[in-house]
Amino acid sequence: MIAMAIVACVVSYLIHRPTSWRERVLTWAILLCVVGLSLRTALHLWPNLDVLGPLDLVFGSLTRVIYKVL
């Protein structure tokens, strides 16, 4: 998966090359994110990375209220 991610990132950079520095930075940031996320998935690094945690905390309890009301 990591190999796939890296190759795909290079390809995506080649398919549409960003024109300004801002686009370049953003593109590279996202691509690095991709590689990072796939590293995390493939190697189980940072097992505590929980994007959903905060969402769950805030909205999960809100939804529970909805269910309770009904």
Binding site: V7, V10, V11
Partner: peptide
């Protein structure tokens, strides 16, 4: 052409 080549490459990894 480079991009095309690499697209082929990635399909190969697939």
């Amino acid at each position: 052409p480079c991009a095309t080549l690499v697209v082929i490459l990635i399909w190969t990894t697939l």
